[in-house]
Design a binder for these strands. Structure first.
Lengths: 133, 133
DNA sequence: CTGTATCCGTGAGGATACTG
DNA sequence: CAGTATCCTCACGGATACAG
């Protein structure tokens, strides 16, 4: 068969789209921010540097795996810095970088919209659920 | 055993935290926005009402299931309206509600930060990867 | 104290087929 | 045209054990 099947064409389109999509800066940012623990870690660091164990206690519910994984990701992206003090036992401090700080107004904006409008959303949701009872 | 085991205490903490967490307005908003298709649908509707089939074509890569599911969710949250025209065949138009429109500046803000700073993030990422080669 | 390594259950979401 | 119903995969993240 010389021509492509519909399935093949669909596949190609999807892959091309996914490639384009994952290149979108806004998407990248949303993917980072949407991570369950990212905003919590950033907020916990907003007031200043914190130790690993402090973050673990402060952010109830994180598994070690997720906390470490989140911190590694943020460090890699240059949003958070990691400082190791080779005492015994070792001590590690995390802090927001300037780039990380620059993200805070955005977090605040999200918080603001949410607090202003989330009531409307909930109301709409109840209405919808009642109407479709 | 009268006292709780460490595992039990951890479990309780996690559950209480999850409950608190899912109540957080910012979290609710981020969960919505972070959905792979939500911002795309909202953007597609920014210019005016669109038909279902138009959205399906415009947003390459969406499965029917996801498009419908996304639209239902947005409708339920009062961000998008659904208008059915009972012609033959049926025609359905989707449009942003005022509430949905109010979200657009926030989407723009996200876009703006991303376009300004995503370069720094990528640079940091490369540096990190090189240093940990 | 601050991690790394491994296993494993769950659920989001894609593919496909069918309907008013 | 605009969905609904079903199956099935696979990646995310929790639990657990171990290490420098």
């Amino acid at each position: 068969m010389v021509t492509k099947t519909a399935a093949e064409r669909r596949d190609e389109a999807r892959q091309a789209f996914d490639a384009y999509f994952s290149e979108c800066p806004s998407r990248k940012l949303l993917d980072r921010l949407s991570d369950k623990w990212v905003t919590l870690v950033l907020s916990a660091l907003a007031a200043g540097p914190r130790r690993y164990s402090h973050l673990a206690r402060r952010i109830a519910g994180v598994s070690q795996k997720m906390l470490t994984q989140t911190l590694r990701g943020l460090e890699r992206d240059g949003l958070v810095s990691r400082t190791l003090t080779p005492s015994v036992p070792v001590r590690v401090d995390y802090a927001l970088t300037p780039l990380g700080e620059s993200l805070m107004p955005l977090v605040a904006a999200i918080k603001s919209w949410a607090e202003t409008h989330i009531g409307d959303v909930e109301a709409a949701r109840e209405r919808y659920d009642v109407d479709n009872a």
